[in-house]
């Protein structure tokens, strides 16, 4: 049983050498393993900043509050320590790393997170299985990390990493954006396989309710003005679907 707590988190985006802007203005959120929390909100509300700030992206600086994973202070950890502690971020725009093959990258990541190098043959088998589950052509293993991948291919590979790394907390930042219905189904099945273990808490950041038809949330939070503006059950998503974010945009402004 894992408890992931965000308490009073404040963060700035670093724009230039001297310029910065506060985006997160006191975020409170607790996610237990086995739970799925949908974070919904209008564009520019700070949803993605929350994801990146928690993961330790160099463009953001935490100015207040805390993030705890089973009581351990995540913010004191380096980016890679956070990942090894069990935190995972599926990015909205995964990064291309030229010349580093996907298979080499995945094996390095799995070795780091599991604390020992997996047996080569066992790992190949595991990788092939996970790739086929996400309808990823085996040839991708030999290509550079995300290099020349389409948007949908990148998203599938983020979920591939989710399945291989088996984190305690998975933050999925707009994983549904840019996917057609077929790709959305494939990606959602991957997320549901990871959830089925009951050992992962999921923070599902999305602008649209569409993905919630495939990945069922236990809680829905409306994110506006850099904080959680309202929380509820799955029914809150239906309200947002029919009424939009207008009410919250005004609150946040």
């Amino acid at each position: 049983m894992t408890k992931f707590e965000i308490r009073g988190l404040r963060a700035d985006v670093l724009i230039g050498a001297e310029e910065r802007k506060e985006i997160l203005k006191g975020v409170d959120l607790t996610i237990n393993s086995g739970e799925t929390h949908a974070i919904m909100g209008p564009n520019g509300s700070g949803k993605s900043t929350l994801a990146y700030a928690v993961a330790g992206h160099p463009k953001y600086e935490i100015t207040g509050g805390e993030v705890l994973l089973d009581g351990e202070n995540v913010l004191e950890m380096s980016v890679d320590e956070r990942a090894r502690a069990g935190l995972f971020l599926a990015m909205q725009y995964p990064v291309e790393v030229p010349g580093v093959s996907m298979s080499n990258f995945l094996r390095s990541a799995v070795t780091a997170v599991r604390g020992e190098a997996p047996k080569l043959r066992a790992f190949s088998k595991e990788l092939q299985g996970a790739m086929s589950g996400l309808s990823i052509d085996p040839s991708f293993a030999g290509r550079g990390v995300n290099e020349g991948f389409s948007g949908g291919e990148k998203k599938r590979h983020e979920i591939l990493q989710l399945e291989l790394l088996k984190p305690k907390v998975a933050i999925l930042d707009e994983t549904d954006s840019g996917l057609d219905v077929d790709a959305l189904k494939v990606v959602s099945e991957g997320i549901n396989r990871a959830k089925a273990t009951g050992e992962v808490g999921v923070m599902l950041i999305t602008h649209y309710t569409r993905i919630l038809n495939y990945v069922k949330p236990d809680f829905v939070h409306v994110f506006a003005g850099g904080r959680v503006a309202e929380s509820g059950g799955p029914e809150l998503a239906d309200v947002l679907e029919s009424e939009g974010y207008e009410r919250f945009v005004k609150v946040g402004a």
Binding site: P58, D80, A83, M91, V95, V97, V100, S108, A112, G144
Partner: peptide, 27 residues
């Protein structure tokens, strides 16, 4: 951003550096 991506998958900073540099040549 390259280093962040690799590190966010648990790969330690020095190993991430080595991967990115080798990738630069390998490409």
């Amino acid at each position: 951003v390259h280093l962040f991506y690799l590190q966010s998958r648990g790969i330690p900073a020095d190993a991430a550096r080595r991967l990115v540099i080798r990738g630069f040549f390998a490409e």
